[in-house]
Amino acid sequence: MFRNNYDNDSVTFSPQGRIFQVEYASEAVKQGSVVVGIVSKTHSVLAAIKRNAEELSSYQKKIITIDSHYGIALAGLASDARVLSNFMKQQSLASRLTYDRAIPLSEITSRIADRAQTNTQQYGRRPYGVGLLIAGVDAKGPHLFEFQPSGVTQEMIACGIGARSQMARTYLERHLDDFAACGREDLIKHALRALKESLSQDKELTVDNTSVGVAGIGENFVHYEGQDIAQWLDATFENREEDDSSSDDAMETDS
């Protein structure tokens, strides 16, 4: 049987110039449940599906508030995300302490990117097995960044990562031009709809398995769960059976 000799560690290039260990780490992200993020001119939104190990267990946390102005959503190894989020919290506090400034999102993103890159160039380490969406508001307005295990980070208008996230991305691409002008409520609805696209047919978004994070200009990052998101789920999906135009109207009026 063919044996790939170039995939044992992250310090070996394949003859094509690829690093398989890093590519495998990206697969771990695809094992995680889906998370979605969108930005408008005024707001930045995260939405995530939470999984529970069994019926009676609690749900895995998917959205973490880092500082009052931003938070992250994760897909992949949650324990790796915790390491990164602790680092982000520490860096964010350091910025507030030394400069009395909320750390710019581009800055914190590149700091974790640099950390992740180190893990792909030194023996005895492994790449992080988690993808992150970093969303919030800084002095330059709302932002959304995507972080990958390879250390690649990109600023996005909208993004979805995790299991079956291609469906969410397709939805996001289709509505890409609408996002900029969206208000808070509309943006959340778009995020929930994108999330729903990635769900298998027999599943529904519920107050138990859905998590939402929102930040806006002059508005701190808030993480919503449980009954706090019931109204959004109701408002977003009540007219599912009806045609699209009527649901669009409903969306316009209650925002």
Partner: peptide
Amino acid sequence: LSNSVFSPDGRNFQVEYAVKA
């Protein structure tokens, strides 16, 4: 398969693979 190893004809293949990237 490893960085810092010469082939018998004096090449470091890992560097050449990096160039491919």
